[in-house]
């Protein structure tokens, strides 16, 4: 079983959900993102999701777009992402990479899989790669022992949910709303239904993302999902802060609040 699978199992045994925290690599700088991700782990985030910044992130809302733009303007390269993965994996937390497909195709799918595995990454979350187009990635992830997280959506038919989860390894990503990343004031009504539909087809853990930003929301989602995935709300801590130190402090506070939320599931 993958390292993420082990972590999910342990959380299940403890009667809580896993907290997955997402940050773009190289935001606000390569060293700054390592510091931010390390602070998140120290404050109780279980799994770090390192997003490879991309010029055309169609699944991301304004907050992550802005952070990605800052990272790219700072000159971050795909190879830097691997360095960040390696540094954060050294904390002991599982590190998964989220990426749009073109940077991986450009790097070389098999070569990237090899280098990600060597850096200690557990696998990829692929927001614009569906299993239908993923032959090369399926082969490379098998060859290098990496997890594959494809997304399911409220609009997915049962047939597509079944097909998609069959190709997943590690965990399944359920997008809570029809929309892009970004914290929302209300959690989704569609998510619990989607999670139970996924469970009809797989025993893999299910993480829910899109729109979660507070401890209370994390607690609600932890009531029906195995993982709570938070991105924009964490990124905003750094974007809005007057200084990097203030940003890290805000990031620790929110991480701790979310960590408390996933430990007190609303049932």
């Amino acid at each position: 079983m993958s390292r993420i699978g082990v972590a999910f199992d342990k959380a299940r045994a403890d009667g809580r959900a896993l907290l997955v925290g997402c940050m773009p690599a190289g935001f606000p700088s390569v060293e700054g993102s390592i510091a931010a991700m390390t602070a998140m782990v120290e404050a109780g985030v279980d799994v770090i999701e390192v997003e490879i910044p991309y010029s055309d992130p169609v699944m991301d809302g304004p907050v992550i777009q802005k952070a990605s733009d800052i990272a790219l303007a700072g000159g971050v390269r795909t190879a830097d992402t691997l360095r960040i993965v390696e540094a954060v994996a050294a904390t002991g937390a599982p590190v998964v990479t989220m990426t749009y497909w073109n940077p991986i195709e450009r790097y070389g799918v098999d070569v990237f899989a090899r280098d990600l595995a060597a850096a200690g990454g557990t696998g990829l979350i692929t927001p614009d790669l569906i299993p239908d187009e993923a032959d090369e990635w399926l082969a490379a992830s098998d060859a290098h022992g990496l997890d594959r997280t494809f997304l399911v959506s409220p609009s997915s038919t049962d047939a597509r949910v079944a097909m998609t989860v069959e190709h997943c390894r590690g965990f399944v990503y359920a997008t809570a709303v029809m929309g892009v990343t970004g914290a929302r004031s209300r959690t989704s009504d569609a998510a619990p239904t989607l999670v139970s539909r996924v469970r009809e087809f797989t025993d893999l853990p299910v993480g829910v993302g899109l729109g979660v930003g507070t401890g209370a929301q994390a607690s609600t989602v932890a009531g029906y999902a195995d993982g709570v995935i938070v991105g924009s709300a964490l990124v905003r801590c750094l974007l809005d802060a007057p200084s990097e130190a203030d940003g890290l402090a805000a990031l620790r506070t929110l991480s701790a609040e979310l960590a408390e939320g996933v430990r007190t599931p609303t049932r």
């Binding site: 169609v58 699944m59 497909w101 927001p127 614009d128 790669l129 569906i130 239908d132 187009e133 494809f150 997304l151 399911v152 959506s153 409220p154 609009s155 997915s156 038919t157 597509r160 998609t164 997008t175 029809m178």
Partner: peptide, 11 residues
């Protein structure tokens, strides 16, 4: 092909 979020596949 289709390199899109799963959310768009139904549409």
């Amino acid at each position: 092909g289709r390199f899109v979020p799963e959310a768009l596949v139904a549409a």
